[in-house]
Design a protein around this nucleic acid. Structure first.
Lengths: 372, 372
DNA sequence: GACCCCAGAAGGCACGATTCTGCATGTGCG
DNA sequence: CGCACATGCAGAATCGTGCCTTCTGGGGTC
């Protein structure tokens, strides 16, 4: 008892710390600390009268439980890491493309709805930073081959869900990805149906799975239909290099009559290159690029885009991760393949469906904000 | 002593908890907990031999200090909230525009360099979420009038630095903003010099300071040069409404011969509207919009943009916030105004500087990734 | 020889919440 | 009337680390 009394005296009520603690609430409500905790968390067996009384006192004192103390005790922080792999030497290319922005938006929203918050953590950050924040789990976007950070995370026992198939044998808890093979094949079929005889590819030099799978699918399709591959590569993190590569592709002697660009800015790059060479789109050149940007609805001409539906991916990734954190649905499949969406516009149709230009951003199945 | 022994026995070494704690390191190194803590944090007075020995043992055991315990003890979590105000009823429009993306990128990078991580927290999230994460400070992007979340944060004693002047008398710790008056006036002068007689404005219905200051600057400029204001407003969070408003503006009987669009997508919107009405850019219509997107370098024609330099803003905001958190430089000015950058392209020049189209994305003073 | 000083290391409290254990008090039933 | 049982609540251990305080020798000085 002597120790308890000394301890209480040392606290000195709510004078020392600016904010009210659970002890202050207990004292003000005339109950014990246990009762306050139980009343606020709905845990113990208390009559409604006590419960509401405690809640009211806590509200009046402006009591906010300490996140650090709760995390220390329960072992759960309610924080999810959002790891963005950096490309090359670039300091941090988060949201370089609209994909990341939309994916992060959906992930944040989904996490918030289940009571979690997202912490942005680039993969290149030093390890001491990772240990400086208590995470319940991590989302990894496009993990590269044998990412040391991911390996470290998994070894420390944290659930890790990746956006994109993990390369190599990265032991992630679960992953979500698009069906890139089907997407590329369907898109190439679409171009061939529109009259393309030789389809070119603008792709990247990076080794992430998206680039590799899409490029492989292109080669497979070429082999199947008996076309010689026509492609140019460039480091995807360098926007200037993309414009140069687009130029190279259209300057080739075996110039393609249709091009698919793997990265977001390729659409405008290819359009500018086509103008330089006097190629009309879609009459002389069919164009498709993978992008989430809405600018391609209003370019001249509007450009057909392949949407990876990053919103749906971000949402799914978060659901899987939180399920793993909370230990529910462990028997569910740990990998999930999601469809893509080809938004057909003028640039990939030899005969435009209408001669007059359509109304601006018609409310049809356009690139509207699909929040599902 | 009896209590200590019982306590140590209850722990049972590193069996119970999967990860090694500081006690395990102390036991393995044959020293006390205090010595381990001092050795790893470089705090006490220890010979280098002991220090390196402890470090080696900790390394061998894979010891990672508990972030929660450290936060509880020190009161500092190393986490900074990144608050994004939501527009209207939209669930969460984070990175709707390239501005947010670039600003968040720079802020993340700057915070990381000083040992902090960013937590994404929409302003509409319920209060219980805010108390669920221990923050050392918060960045608020474009706080609206008397934002309840900001008021709550400031009252809880946390440093709050806002991107954009706080509306009303929001008592933020510091703020950073562009010189919007000067930017708009300089831009309108530029258009007038290019031959514009009647300059229109495409602006928003929201009450954030950016919109208000820019619109006011437009009205002031009009009053000064004796031009009747010609403007259309629309809810900035709705991309479709932007296209419609652009259409409205060009359909007016007093059609302007130059337009400034306050928001990122306005450039393509106005370009599309001009095409619909058969207006040539820049011959019949001069165009400028505020945007950080690089697509305007390759549109037909390339569009002059006003860059707010979000990277610099994000970096400055973080520096100010961390300075306030760590209590250094309190006598420094708590508000900082930063210049903007007008990137002049074809759309605002009556006489293009060269008759031939320039090379793609020339390495000149273009919208390159200025990371400073 | 007594005294002080100081490097080096250990002891133990406290951060603020959760939660297990357990006591006191009503209530139903044999 | 007594025992089993549910209810309402308090005490105290505990999470893992930081740091304030204390202890212990060994060497130097008067």
């Amino acid at each position: 008892m002597g120790r308890a009394a000394a301890s209480r005296r040392a606290h000195g009520g709510s004078r020392l710390s600016g904010r009210a603690g659970i002890r202050d609430v207990a004292a003000a409500a005339g109950v014990s600390i246990t009762t306050v905790s139980d009343a606020l968390n709905g845990k113990g067996r208390l009559p409604d009268a006590t419960r509401s009384h405690v809640r009211e006192v806590a509200q009046r004192l402006g009591y906010r439980p300490s996140a650090a103390a709760r995390t220390l005790r329960t072992g759960k922080s309610g924080l999810i890491g959002l790891t963005v792999t950096t490309y090359g030497e670039e300091p941090f290319t988060f949201t370089e493309f609209a994909y990341f922005a939309e994916m992060a938006r959906a992930a944040t929203s989904a996490a918030l709805a289940r009571g979690y918050a997202l912490v942005i953590l680039p993969a290149t950050s030093r390890h001491d930073l990772w240990s400086n924040v208590a995470l319940d789990g991590t989302v990894v976007i496009d993990p590269s081959d044998e990412d040391p950070v991911v390996t470290e995370l998994v070894r420390s026992g944290l659930p890790v869900v990746s956006d994109g198939r993990p390369a190599g044998s990265l032991p992630v808890t679960a992953w979500v990805d698009n069906d890139h093979e089907e997407a590329v094949q369907g898109l190439l079929d679409h171009l061939a149906e529109a009259g393309a005889r030789r389809i070119g590819l603008l792709t990247g030099t990076t080794t992430d799975t998206y680039t590799r799978l899409s490029t492989t699918a292109y080669f497979d399709w070429c082999a199947r239909v008996g076309q010689e591959p026509v492609y140019e590569t460039y480091p995807a993190h360098d926007p200037c290099a993309g414009a140069v590569a687009a130029d190279r592709l259209l300057a080739r002697p075996d110039r393609p009559d249709a091009v698919y660009g793997l990265f977001d800015p390729n659409g405008t790059d290819l359009l500018a290159a086509a103008r330089r060479y006097g190629l009309r789109v879609p009459e002389d050149l069919l164009l498709v690029c993978c992008s989430e940007s809405s600018v391609y609805a209003t370019t001249e001409p509007p450009i057909t885009t392949l949407s990876l539906k990053p919103g749906r991916i971000g949402n799914t990734v978060i659901q899987l991760l939180i399920d793993a954190i909370e230990g529910i649905g462990q028997d569910a499949p740990v990998q999930q393949v999601m469809p893509t969406d080809l938004i057909v516009r003028t640039s990939s149709q030899r005969r435009p469906p209408r001669t007059t230009v359509s109304a601006p951003r018609s409310p049809g199945p356009g690139p509207g904000a699909g929040t599902d």
